[in-house]
Simulated assay, not measured.
Amino acid sequence: MPLALPHTCAVQAARRDDGVLRLHSSDVRGGVTELRVDKLGPLGATGDRGGWAAYPAGVVWALREAGLQVGGADLHFESTVPTGAGLSSSAALEVATAVALDDLYGLGLDAPRLARLCQRAENEFVGVPCGVMDQMASACCTRGHALHLDTRDLTQRQVPFDLAAQGMRLLVVDTRVKHSLGDGAYAERRAGCEAGAVALCVGTLREVPHEELAAALERLGEARLRPLVRHVVTENHRVSEVIRLLEAGRTRDIGPVLSAGHASLRDDFAVSCAELDLAVEAAEAAGALGARMTGGGFGGSAIVLVEEADAAAVAAAVREAFAKAEYREPRVFEAVPGDGARRIPLS
């Protein structure tokens, strides 16, 4: 159940007819990366992630692999999305690229298909076995809403999420602990979940009913799989619970559900870290309604639900706790649900 941040990854794009892809980012040193679109091939099998340019290059590859007529382009990127913060900077880069190329070459892609092609680029070209949630959020979210996405069949609906109107705020605490999902830790968790699904004779853990979780865990022969399965099944239940509360107008009551999600990510899925745990603990101690890490883990960010009147005090308490622990000062800002990727005409 993601939402799109107001931060942006913007791309200025121009079509080329010589089959050359030229990539440049104002945020990265090293000049222009120049590639031939007909020579692009997956990097994941070699273990070489290829740096930031692999993500837009992978999108070009995925579009062409899907039979779409995409040629060369000049693409210049400027991003305000924090990198390595668990805030989907790679998905923003991919989706911005795909939207630009869709426009340049008149591909006629709808947002869900565009997101799936971006996921394929990250999975097969870059070599990161991510799901499709981040790409769907970047492509499909709308202002003032959270996206309820069922990745079993990619059905989606927009759930109103206007916290300001109810006197609340959602803060993001960027711990500034960088993570990389390409180092194998994320892949290990995913492989464990897939093994759990095989052991339970289901296609995915999405098919395990929450009310049958205890019995399912008893059937698992490998003890190491039990916490992974427990996290996924309970996390799906927490999404349903948040939607039920929001639809009932009980927005403040989602706070404990967020906190329970963090405990599960910390203890069962084991993807948290000391800085994330401290951010959550300090926020809750200062009066936050709830808090949890977000993103793939091993660093990155936490989200904190607070009363508007408490926002400044909670942010100050988190910073103070980090200073006391001698951690790098975190970056704290408000998350306001924004729109997904779109064309912005140059003035």
Results as ranks from 00 to 15, higher is better:
R206I: 00
V242T: 14
L171T: 04
A187E: 13
L205Q: 11
R342K: 13
T294K: 06
A199K: 10
A317H: 04
A323F: 00
V95D: 09
A85L: 04
L43W: 04
V232C: 10
T83Q: 13
P345D: 14
Y105R: 11
G249W: 07
E247A: 15
K178H: 15
D253A: 15
L154H: 13
A98L: 01
V229D: 08
A312V: 08
R157S: 12
A248R: 08
G340E: 09
S301G: 06
A10H: 11
R120W: 03
G338V: 02
V233T: 02
S347R: 15
G299N: 05
R292I: 00
V28I: 09
A62K: 04
G31H: 12
V37Y: 05
H145D: 14
G41W: 00
A214C: 08
T151L: 08
G127A: 06
C9M: 12
C9D: 14
R64L: 02
Q12A: 13
G86K: 03
G131P: 12
V257G: 07
A282L: 03
S25E: 12
A146L: 07
S301F: 03
A92M: 08
G51F: 04
V229C: 05
R176K: 15
L93I: 01
A341S: 11
S26K: 13
L305Y: 08
P227L: 01
L289T: 01
A223I: 02
R343W: 04
M1L: 12
A317L: 02
D74H: 14
Y327F: 15
W52S: 01
Q158P: 05
D268R: 07
C118S: 09
A270I: 00
V99M: 12
F298Y: 11
A335F: 05
L276Y: 02
G72K: 09
V28A: 14
C201H: 15
F298W: 11
L278A: 06
T46M: 03
Q156K: 08
D174N: 14
L217Y: 06
G84A: 06
Y186Q: 10
C140V: 02
V318G: 02
G192P: 07
G192D: 12
L265S: 13
V128W: 05
L163F: 03
A288V: 00
V126I: 07
V332I: 15
N236S: 14
G196V: 00
C118K: 08
L170M: 15
V233W: 02
L109D: 11
R113Q: 13
A279D: 00
V208L: 12
D153T: 07
F161Q: 08
A100V: 02
G296R: 06
F333M: 10
P2Y: 08
R266S: 08
L228V: 11
A285C: 04
V208I: 14
H76M: 05
C9Y: 09
E326M: 03
E124F: 09
V95W: 09
P330D: 12
P345F: 06
E247F: 10
F298L: 01
A215G: 15
R143K: 15
A73K: 10
G255E: 02
R49E: 14
D339Y: 07
A216Q: 13
H179T: 01
G192R: 10
